[in-house]
């Protein structure tokens, strides 16, 4: 009988067969899912963002919806709308694509802020309100949004407040030489995707999410997390420190990461590993630190805070 941890490991292997050489990104994505957070993948087109989302959905047996964001997409296109049905003489709600367990919001920064915020509100609340009526979204509800880097033409970059809604932001990056070669030699990704085995039942995923909350965080570890938060708030290298939500998210992500590594307690290494993904998009350079990339900012934070003795 395979344990939950074994199944999670198997999921990572399975997803890894479609998107080669990106185990770390897959793990982070899975950790994000286990921590009940949402994932933002920021990368150039064609890097496998869609494939990753699709593969995860398949392996975990989740309902999957892909929403291509465009500049003319309206909120109702996502959420759904009440349509008048003549036979019944009533308005009947037609759910939009958001009523699925795993949503891929592709190129979210191409939509207008109004549409973006409709999605983000749904992400935050776990429900949508249409015509004064609240409707529950399915569970689990996991959004993977992708975003082209902001310098591309015709985009509406997500504002800082909206970025905070994503637990993690990751980049996939180019595959390394070996992985690229396998990709070129191998079969069509779509066929591989179609063959993927379902590695976990939704109930097990739910169990895993519950288990994440039970991963032990010892006082010295909480000290460390607090020290990180405090430093981000006090140092003038950053403009505006990390929010309490960021702190909660960091701990949750670290717990999920520890669970993926079959550990019942969180280590500082777990925090440090998820730190770039969790706080990279929430840290903003201070006035005398403007030139720094977000990766460099995270590095500064990491190096500046010592582990409490």
């Amino acid at each position: 009988m395979a344990t939950l941890e074994d199944q999670l490991e198997f999921t990572i292997q399975e997803v890894g067969t479609t998107i080669l050489g990106k185990e770390r990104a897959i793990r982070l994505a899975l950790a994000c899912l286990l921590a009940r957070g949402h994932l933002l993948i920021e990368d150039l087109p064609g890097m496998g963002k869609t494939t990753l989302a699709h593969a995860l959905a398949r392996c975990l047996g989740l309902q999957y919806q892909r929403i291509q964001f465009t500049s003319d997409l309206l909120p109702a296109d996502i959420l759904g709308a009440a349509v008048y049905e003549r036979q019944k003489e009533t308005f009947v709600f037609h759910p939009g694509p958001i009523f699925a367990q795993l949503i891929l919001a592709d190129e979210i920064n191409r939509a207008t802020p109004k549409t973006q915020s409709a999605l983000l509100e749904a992400m935050e609340e776990g429900q949508v309100t249409i015509e004064g009526e609240s409707r529950e979204l399915p569970k689990p509800f996991f959004v993977i949004a992708t975003q082209n880097p902001a310098y591309q033409i015709g985009t509406f970059p997500l504002p800082e407040s909206q970025l905070d809604r994503f637990l993690m932001r990751i980049e996939l990056g180019y595959p390394d030489v070996q992985a690229e070669r396998m990709l070129l030699e191998g079969e069509d990704r779509r066929e591989v995707l179609a063959r993927l085995a379902i590695s976990m039942a939704p109930a097990q995923l739910h169990e895993a999410q519950a288990k994440v909350a039970g991963v032990h965080a010892a006082p010295p570890l909480l000290d460390y997390v607090q020290a990180l938060l405090a430093f981000s708030r006090q140092s003038n290298r950053f403009r505006g420190g990390l929010s309490p939500r960021a702190g909660l998210g960091l701990l949750r992500a670290a717990r999920a990461w520890a669970l993926l590594h079959r550990r019942g307690h969180v280590l500082p290494e777990d925090v440090q590993t998820v730190l770039p993904a969790v706080v990279g998009h929430r840290l903003h350079p201070g006035d005398d630190n403007l030139e720094q990339s977000s990766a460099a900012l995270v590095e500064q934070l990491l190096n500046a805070v010592a582990l409490p003795a």
Binding site: L267, P268, E269, Q272, L302, N303, V305, A306, L307, A309
Partner: peptide
Amino acid sequence: VARAWQQFCDRLARRGLARGSHEGPLD
């Protein structure tokens, strides 16, 4: 526990393997 760990780190530090202040035990 912390004392024993400090002792261990000190001993390695004397051989030129100092633990970074933010470096976790497994790393």
